[in-house]
Design a protein around this nucleic acid. Sequence first.
RNA 1: GGCAGUGUAGCUCAGUUGGUGAGAGCGCCGGAUUCAUAACCCGGAGGUCGGCGGUUCAAAUCCGCCCGCUGCUACCA
Length: 522
Amino acid sequence: MSSKPKFYITTAIAYPNGVPHMGHAYEAIATDCIARFKRLDGYDVRFLTGTDEHGIKMLQTAQKAGLTPRELLDRNVPRFQAMVEAFGLSIDDFIRTTEERHKKSCQAIWEKMAANGDIYKSTYAGWYSVRDEAYYAEDETQLNADGVRLGPQGTPVEWVEEDSYFFRLSAYQQKLLDHYAANPDFIAPDARRNEVVSFVSGGLQDLSISRTTFDWGIPVPGDPKHIMYVWVDALTNYITALGYPDTQGELFAKYWPADVHVIGKDITRFHAVYWPAFLWSAGLAAPQRVFGHGFLFNRGEKMSKSVGNVVDPFDLVKAYGVDAVRYFFLREVSFGQDGSYSHDAIVTRMNADLANDLGNLAQRSLSMISKNLDGVVPEPGPLSPEDEAILAAADDMLAKAREAMDVQAIHHYLAAVWAVVADANRYFAAAAPWALRKTDPERMKTVLWTTAEVIRQVAILAQPVMPESASRMLDLLVLPAEERDFSRLGGAHRLAGGIVIPPPVGIFPRYVEPEGEAGPSA
RNA sequence: GGCAGUGUAGCUCAGUUGGUGAGAGCGCCGGAUUCAUAACCCGGAGGUCGGCGGUUCAAAUCCGCCCGCUGCUACCA
């Protein structure tokens, strides 16, 4: 048994009635960065993602394409799984809601909620479109000139009442409000929490949680004419993946409740209201935190097929490289707020932060060790106040990074690290080791060692964002694999002198515009 | 309509509980340098801190009003 503290983190499961877009990739990258950070910081991490494969829309999309839902899944889900590879996502499990384990899990939580008296049968009434096989809210419909009420797809709707099971959500209003008050960090960022609190304060109605008008879903136990509707099915994935209903099993016992559900801000309510209520009803604990991230805009415009600015995330990786794409989105966008991206913005970040600042710093300092010291990392002499200052700044990064990551402020963590990179460039220029080569070679050695030590710590801390590039940078320092976690940060494990390092190779090349192209997002 | 946010240099944004001359990155102009990925380093230009009116010895930072933008206001997710 590990004595490490556990950390369970999830993305929302993606709805694969289409192919992945940058929003899916963004959520996954951010969650992966947090997962990797926690692993390096000594946590026993479990990181889950997956696909939400049931529901009316899957059915409709499949029908339009002349496919069965299963065939549609076979076509689309591999694209989401490929995204895991393409973006270097360090997941421990990929859940699909059509799996047998999920059916068992959903039926189990249903029975628990029913046993607790929170599920009852009644009728669900609303404007129903036979052609769309979907219900619409009153304000989504309108009367045409002939007095016929139409749904948003322009199809006629009729008032229908069908049998449905309901979840007694109304019974949980006060408990939810109390929970929000007692756990101010339960919903983040603050704007999202305010919205949820406001919503719940306004009163909660019971929730219709089954349908009989289509069958692409998980059957309700004991009443197979009904399938579970949307959220009972979708949210339960987070515990299915831990082996639910086996709450005594190793996974569930260790990892539940989840530490963070990373989700898009649009589904905050379902995670912050329905989900805890379902869990409590089933006798389980609520997750520690629900974090609603923002949306991405392509050059300030919402991505849409009609505007023609939908960017294939795989194309971005091809154009800029996976690490540059990861870095860009996590550094440029304040995590939790909406963000914007463009070819120019990505190139600017790549060149300024990665090539010019970090890449060039490593290249210029390590190449001096290579050329002037036969590649032998020097032992430092007496440290000057300038050396002490830059080392102190480097030693201080971990505390700042942790403080930021405790609240999922990924951009703050990266800003703190890159502030030290900027400091290190100033330090290096001021110390001018190339001039010391002739005037004071011993002092030059100390400057080069100090710089290499800062690079060591920066590269270790860069691993969660850019796993590939950061490890190649650590390879340049010949740092053993077991010396690359955060326990090696700070002053207790300085870079050892005397080892031979290879001539440096560029880790972060400048982005040069290909002939005749302006990039995939332009 | 109600509730909640937000409006700071060309662009993207920091600015704790009101108090040394309002900051960063990118962009722009100039300088220095050549160890380095034409990179790094130094300096500079540029802002009525949305508008008006208050509180205060003192407000980007508090209060009121106005203008603009955004989100939420349940069963599409």
